[in-house]
Design a protein around this nucleic acid. Structure first.
Lengths: 155, 155
DNA sequence: CGCATATACTTCGAAAAATGAACTATTCAA
DNA sequence: TTGAATAGTTCATTTTTCGAAGTATATGCG
């Protein structure tokens, strides 16, 4: 059988405990996205998820912890597959906004819903606990959105 | 400034909200691990974190969503750098157990503590909320540990 | 036992993904 | 208007990942 390290984990700080749970959940999410047999590469999946709204490529690069040239090729692939379009940012004509197409929005919806299913399967939480976890997760995400992006402030 | 999509997020199912928070936190963790300027590659970091106890390479492959040959080369690098050793699994002499060295344990400790710091910085939660989030995260992780591993059951 | 088949990991060449430096177009500041 | 800075692109190089064939051990069956 598998092992039980709960006693060990309990001795760690709450913050570390929190991150270990996050870590485990994230890998479960990856696993189910991989299993999805969708035509998207890893990186392409992530870009879809990050595109909660039109974003500049530079912002995406910061967001996805990568360099601009990687964003270019990922965006090329998603554009070629019809998931998004490039639109000049009216506020700065050097920049492009990546905008999900109808097909892209549907795909993103599907990916998110798969993420939700993955949580349900993996977490083992009941409805109340899930609601509480969701509340805190929402709060955390809001905090990250508010404070997280270095300075590529624009959408 | 950054945008506020909290109203949109609230309309999603709790499970999706939960996963979006997890997703955001995980990327923040990646970001701080990257910034750590440690001699470890991405994959090597992940292997260190996954090695909460000695594990077979095959189990790690399942755990890390990759193929055996990738595990071999990652383990080679970590072994060469003195973070772990290979020990034959006494229960099956075809298999190796990857065992963290003293140096490896320290490094893992450091990575975990960085993860904790990252949570503190990113989450914006107070002590009570952090404790509650940690409790649920622990529960989730226990559930994943219990149910997650396909069948490479062994340590 | 002895052989066939399955499993655990390794090797190594091929494929895929990520990077960075040089480049184009646009903006900004003086 | 001009020079420096910024957003994104191109493309050659590097890094990472993969997968097929190989070695060693285990397991099952007659």
């Amino acid at each position: 059988m598998t092992y039980d390290d709960s006693a060990l984990v309990r001795r760690l700080s709450p913050e570390v405990q929190a991150m270990m749970g996050v870590y485990a959940l994230y890998w479960k999410l990856e696993e189910s996205l991989d299993a999805l047999e969708v035509e998207l590469s890893h990186q392409e999946c992530h870009m879809m998820v990050k595109l909660d709204q039109p974003k500049r490529m530079g912002v995406l690069a910061a967001d996805m912890l990568t360099v601009p040239s990687t964003i270019t090729s990922t965006a090329d692939a998603l554009e070629a597959a019809g998931y998004l379009t490039r639109q000049r940012d009216p506020e700065d004509r050097r920049a492009w906004l990546l905008v999900l197409s109808e097909k892209g929005l549907e795909m993103r919806q599907m990916l998110l819903s798969e993420a939700g299913d993955s949580f349900r399967r993996a977490s083992g939480l009941d409805a109340d606990e899930t609601a509480e976890f969701a509340r805190l997760a929402r709060k955390i995400r809001e905090n990250i959105m508010k404070t997280g992006i270095p300075e590529g402030l624009k959408k």
